[in-house]
Simulated assay, not measured.
Amino acid sequence: MATEAHGEATGLSFHPMDQFIVRPLFGDGEVHWYTPTNVTLWMFLIVAATLALLVMGSRGRAIVPTRGQSVAELAYGMVHKMIADIAGKDGLKYFPYVMTLFMFIVFANLLGLLPLAFTVTSHIAVTGVLAAAVIIGVTVIGFVKNGVHFLDLFWIRSAPLAVRPILAVIEVISYFVRPLSLSIRLAGNMIAGHAVIKVFAGFAAIAAVAPVAVVAVVGMYAFEVLVAFVQAYVFTILTCVYLKDALHPSH
Rank of each mutant, 00 (worst) to 15 (best):
L111C: 06
Q19R: 14
V31G: 10
I191L: 10
A131Q: 03
G91P: 05
L45S: 05
M103L: 15
G7K: 09
I63A: 13
L51K: 04
F44L: 13
F118N: 04
A205W: 02
G188L: 06
T35M: 06
G11N: 05
H251N: 06
V172N: 01
Y221P: 02
G112L: 08
I191F: 04
L113N: 05
Y34V: 01
Y94I: 09
Q19G: 09
A232L: 08
H149Q: 11
K89L: 10
M78V: 09
F44Y: 09
E4I: 04
R178M: 06
I237P: 01
E8L: 14
P249T: 05
Y34A: 03
A52G: 07
L151E: 00
L153R: 10
A62K: 12
I135K: 02
Y242G: 00
G77L: 02
A2H: 06
F107G: 01
H6G: 01
M220Q: 11
V134R: 00
P165A: 10
T139S: 15
I21M: 06
H15L: 01
A75R: 11
Y242W: 14
A228G: 07
A62L: 14
L113Q: 11
Y175M: 03
V140A: 14
T100N: 11
C240G: 04
V55W: 11
K81N: 12
F150K: 01
A49M: 13
L161T: 13
D90E: 14
P24M: 06
F107E: 04
Y97Q: 05
T239C: 05
F235M: 10
V148I: 12
K81V: 09
I46D: 15
V39I: 09
G193E: 02
H80M: 07
F44K: 06
V199Q: 02
F223V: 01
F150A: 06
F118V: 07
A49D: 06
G188V: 06
V218L: 11
K81H: 12
A125C: 02
T37E: 04
K81W: 13
H15P: 00
I206F: 11
A210Q: 14
L111R: 07
L167S: 03
E8K: 15
V140D: 05
L226S: 05
P160F: 00
S181F: 10
L74D: 11
Y97A: 09
M103F: 07
P24I: 07
G112C: 09
T127L: 02
V199G: 00
A9Q: 13
V215D: 08
K89F: 09
V47E: 08
G68I: 04
E4T: 07
E30P: 02
K244R: 15
N189D: 04
I191G: 00
L180F: 14
F102I: 00
V120D: 04
A201P: 00
A49K: 08
W42V: 03
L153W: 03
R23T: 14
F200A: 05
Y221A: 13
T100G: 15
A108F: 02
I141P: 02
L111P: 06
I237R: 15
A72R: 08
M43R: 12
A222N: 08
S58Q: 10
P36D: 13
L180E: 01
M190Y: 03
A228N: 04
V227H: 03
